[in-house]
């Protein structure tokens, strides 16, 4: 999965191309709940996502490690980090999470990237009005 071509010139020039080498993927997600006044703490949100993994992939799925890097309680928006091989499992269980404490809810996946840095500059957020 890796290709590297190195040139050792007298100067320090080196170029390396990494393909699919990113260990993690990062997601920016937002939880939308039927009742706007519902608030979750960071721990509750992570537990809720683990419940989703458990119901779709069972105990083995619920053991998937992921990190809640940042969470804004007012907008219910979170940054998640997951090992690249767990991305599809996490994403699919987020998609299928449909109710929180008997209220309809949905996760909106706003951005997915193999780089955390990319999540800090999303041009779709440009507001000029």
């Amino acid at each position: 999965m890796r290709r590297a071509d190195k040139k050792d010139e007298p100067a320090v020039y080196q170029r390396v191309v990494l393909k699919n080498a990113s260990p993690y993927h990062y997601l920016k997600v937002c939880l939308v709940v039927e009742d706007d006044s519902t608030r979750l703490s960071a721990v509750e949100l992570k537990q809720f996502i683990i419940t989703g993994l458990n119901s779709l992939y069972g105990e083995v799925g619920a053991a998937l490690t992921f990190d809640l890097l940042k969470y804004d309680e007012d907008t219910l928006t979170a940054l998640l980090r997951v090992y690249s091989r767990g991305l599809v499992k996490l994403w699919s269980s987020l998609t299928l999470l449909g109710s929180y404490q008997n209220q309809a809810c949905a996760f909106r996946v706003l951005q997915v990237s193999p780089y955390l840095l990319a999540l800090t500059g999303n041009s779709r957020e440009l507001q000029l009005d």
Binding site: A11, V12, Y13, Q14, R15, V16, V17, L18, K19, N20, A21, S22, H25, S84, R85, G86, L87, V88, P114, Y115
Partner: peptide
Amino acid sequence: ERTPRNLLVSERS
């Protein structure tokens, strides 16, 4: 476990 391809070029000069 597969994810779409991504490329990162790393250069020092």
